[in-house]
Amino acid sequence: MNQYLYDGTPEGLVSAIASILDSGENPEEAHLAVRQDMLFEEGLFLRTDSAFAEALFERLRQRAPDAVQTLWYFMMAEADGLETSLLRYIALAFEHGDRVNGYLTHTSVKAIVGTARKAGRELHRMKGLMRFEQLRDGAWLARMEPDCNVMHPLARHFSRRLRAQEWFIFDARRRSAAHWDGHDLSFGTLEQFSRPELSLEERAVQQLWQTFFKTIAIPERKNPRLQQSNMPAKYWKYLTEKQGE
């Protein structure tokens, strides 16, 4: 088993995978991990080369567009320790093309596709669970702390849906933000965040929604366990209907 190391950046990861595949190494025999800079660390360090990473992406896009899609979701999950699985997955994608995602009985494919699916699920979930609040100046703000870094696709979803209003989305976990001004979408980070004041009618509308939320449940069918399995408590922090619980 040959040990390889990279610098821990997403680009370094793809670049390292490109080097290993180009070297003719058998990916099922190779092992890839982040360099820890420890004294007796073993393995060959692969220098990050963005042109290498770019070229690999381009070849994969030609050969297996679905795998590129999977890779994209996989990166959103920000998962640790799956570098070797990713190496083997990409090797299999070059071998089998888009059919690779069906090879779920292969441990590496299962790990990568499963992780990508987790990000996809959370993205879908956040499309429903995000809550915008109207600010004093008429713009809208939604706050969230998702496990996966779903900001980009999520903001694109809302740029098609709520296109007539100016809004911000803030990811409090990553301190990243998206801004839609009615025409264009931009992304950035926010070091300082203080919650702006809400518009005068915001509380009244929130109360109407809370009332609806309470009365739409059938009392004879009360089922808090089912509610929580569908809508885990980690999302309640920013849910208008779950404030004060």
Partner: peptide, 19 residues
């Protein structure tokens, strides 16, 4: 305008009866 629809549908919350 405001709004579009999504082929697969989107759930926005789950009531106290789990629906």
């Amino acid at each position: 305008g405001t709004g579009n629809t999504s082929q697969g549908g989107i759930c926005h919350s789950w009531a106290d009866d789990g629906r």
